Simulated scan of single mutants.
Amino acid sequence: MSKVLVLYYSSYGHIAKMADAVAEGARAGGAEVDVRRVRETAPEEVARSAGFVVADHHPLLTDPNELTNYDAVIVGTGTRYGRMSSQMAAFWDTTGGVWSRGLVGKIGGAFTSTATQHGGQETTLFSIITNLLHHGMTIVGLDYAYEGHTGLDEVNGSTPYGASTIAGGDGSRQPTEIELGGARHQGKRIAELAGKVFG
């Protein structure tokens, strides 16, 4: 059985919900799954005044060496000006020691959330994927076998580079079933591939 890590940062709970859906899909794909979050780096007064919601139902991952315990790592974070959040970037900035030993050949994927339909989903996904590629990981996106890509009945965050959701400018829009379904689909695909590669 392969081991999959879903690693995320969530300011308002949207990414935490997507992380749970990714994990659900990965378990359906036959993997043993851990869901962990990275630490909050914003000052407490900033987080409080911005109304951050701490998704503390998953434990923190603070030691980057733990990444080597997994066959696949699926990374999720909201977008900040079209790139990954500083909280997630700060975590990856600590992975130099892991990089020197390598996560080469492990499976990677990315998922995100933005405020608006064109708020930077794809550039944020690429900013995550770039880190994973530098670690030598093989990337799996959200393939077009997922039917949610093709529907036009409602706005959704589907992109072939990874699952995503649209939160709305005030954060009131929650992930839809199409978006959660994409997260499950991607998680399952990654787990299935990890199972084939690592048995």
Rank of each mutant, 00 (worst) to 15 (best):
L152C: 02
H118R: 13
G136T: 09
P64H: 09
I129W: 03
I107H: 02
L61P: 05
E147Q: 13
W92M: 13
H118N: 12
H134I: 05
L61S: 09
L60N: 08
A90H: 13
I129E: 04
A55H: 01
E154G: 01
R101D: 00
T165K: 01
G157F: 05
A89S: 11
T130K: 09
G105D: 09
G119N: 10
L60C: 07
L125N: 03
I74Y: 04
R83F: 03
L152F: 14
H58V: 04
H135E: 12
T165L: 01
F52Q: 08
F111L: 05
R83K: 14
K106P: 00
E147H: 12
V155S: 13
N69C: 10
H149F: 13
I128K: 02
T159S: 15
T95V: 12
V140D: 00
S100N: 09
R48S: 11
G157A: 11
K106A: 00
I74W: 03
Y146H: 11
G51K: 10
D56M: 12
A115K: 11
G51H: 10
P59I: 08
V73M: 11
G109W: 04
I74V: 15
T95L: 08
G157V: 07
S164Q: 04
N65W: 15
F111V: 00
A163K: 07
R80V: 02
N69D: 15
V54P: 04
A72H: 03
A90G: 06
A115W: 12
F111E: 01
V54Q: 11
S86Q: 10
M84G: 01
Y81Q: 09
G102V: 06
F91N: 00
N156K: 13
W99V: 00
F111W: 07
G78A: 14
T114V: 10
T150F: 15
G120L: 04
G109I: 03
G162H: 10
F91I: 02
T114C: 08
R83D: 02
F52N: 05
L152N: 13
I74L: 14
T124H: 07
G82S: 09
T150S: 14
A55M: 04
H57L: 05
G76T: 03
G148S: 12
Q117C: 00
D143K: 14
F126Q: 08
F126Y: 12
D56S: 15
G105Y: 12
I74S: 01
H134P: 00
T114E: 00
I129P: 02
T150K: 15
S85P: 00
L125V: 03
D63Y: 14
T77Q: 03
G102H: 10
S49K: 15
Q121L: 11
F126L: 15
A72Y: 02
V54A: 11
G105A: 04
I128T: 04
I107R: 02
F126T: 02
W92E: 01
M88T: 02
Q87T: 00
T159Q: 10
M137K: 11
L103C: 09
L125Q: 05
T79K: 07
V75M: 10
R83G: 05
E154P: 04
G96P: 04
I139M: 14
T138C: 09
R83C: 01
I128A: 04
G51N: 11
E122C: 07
V140P: 02
G151K: 15
V104I: 08
V98L: 10
F52D: 00
G82A: 09
V53M: 07
V155Y: 06
L142R: 07
T95N: 02
